Simulated scan of single mutants.
Amino acid sequence: MTRIILVRHGETTWNIEGRYQGQEDTPLSERGLQQGQLLAEGLRHIPLDAAISSPLQRSCQTCQFCAGLHGLPVATDDRLLEINHGSWEGVLAGDIQKQYPKEIAQWHTEPHRVQMPGGGESLEDVRRRVRAAFDDYATRYQNKTVLVAAHDAVNKAIICDLLGLGMEHFWQIKQDNTCINVLEYNDGIWRIVLLNSTNHLGFLFSGIEQAGL
């Protein structure tokens, strides 16, 4: 069996502002740094064999907090990069609503039909590359536990896919900053053991709805 502890990065300055981040390399906010440290403490006593992160600093630094307590290096995998939001990257959610009213409406109702404007990705693009990564991990890390640090859209897409759900179910999965998900692979079957846990932050659920997603 392969066990993957999948986490989302801590809060960023753009999360606070409600800007679409995509593959822009945004830093953690002060609260995001605190969340990363709390995540690390929450996983301190969980045996980890490897740590892998998106190369973007918000995920990599979150992963490093955790890996450091286990004496592990952090490997990076470009397949874990956040969705490329194209021309929406760096733009406030409210401004996107004004500039792309039809596209943003479809993004929130039919996300599986949206190709991000300006050379961005679709959720299917994200699903394919992240699923390839997870299939590799399942083979490479048999009988091991792997920490994987990624992003909101990445996590939602892979969780949907591993559950056999299409990308039209994307918005039915929530991923809070530094949430913990546990996924297990055994004999060709993936299962979800834990989803969007934030107990390490001191609450069962956040009630936070971020705009720049």
Rank of each mutant, 00 (worst) to 15 (best):
A40Q: 02
A138P: 02
C179Y: 05
A149I: 00
A157F: 10
L194A: 11
E30F: 10
V182S: 13
H112S: 12
Y137H: 07
W107R: 10
L28F: 10
S53N: 15
I96Y: 06
G32Q: 02
T62H: 11
L204G: 08
A40P: 12
T109P: 04
G36I: 07
N181K: 11
L201F: 08
T26L: 05
H112K: 00
T76F: 10
L6F: 11
Q37G: 02
C60W: 14
Q142P: 09
L28G: 10
F170N: 03
E17F: 00
L72F: 06
W190D: 10
L28T: 10
G36F: 07
T178N: 10
A133R: 02
G202F: 15
Q61N: 03
E184Q: 15
Q175N: 13
E11L: 12
G207C: 02
W14L: 03
V154W: 10
A133P: 07
Q34A: 13
E209W: 12
F203A: 01
Y137C: 05
H169D: 13
T13G: 00
L201H: 07
K156N: 13
E110A: 13
A132Y: 03
E121N: 06
Y100L: 03
Q142C: 13
V154E: 05
D78I: 06
G71M: 15
A149Q: 02
I104A: 00
N177W: 06
A153D: 01
R129C: 06
A51Q: 03
E17L: 09
G36P: 06
L6Y: 09
G18C: 09
L43I: 11
P47C: 11
A138Y: 01
L48W: 13
I159A: 06
R8A: 03
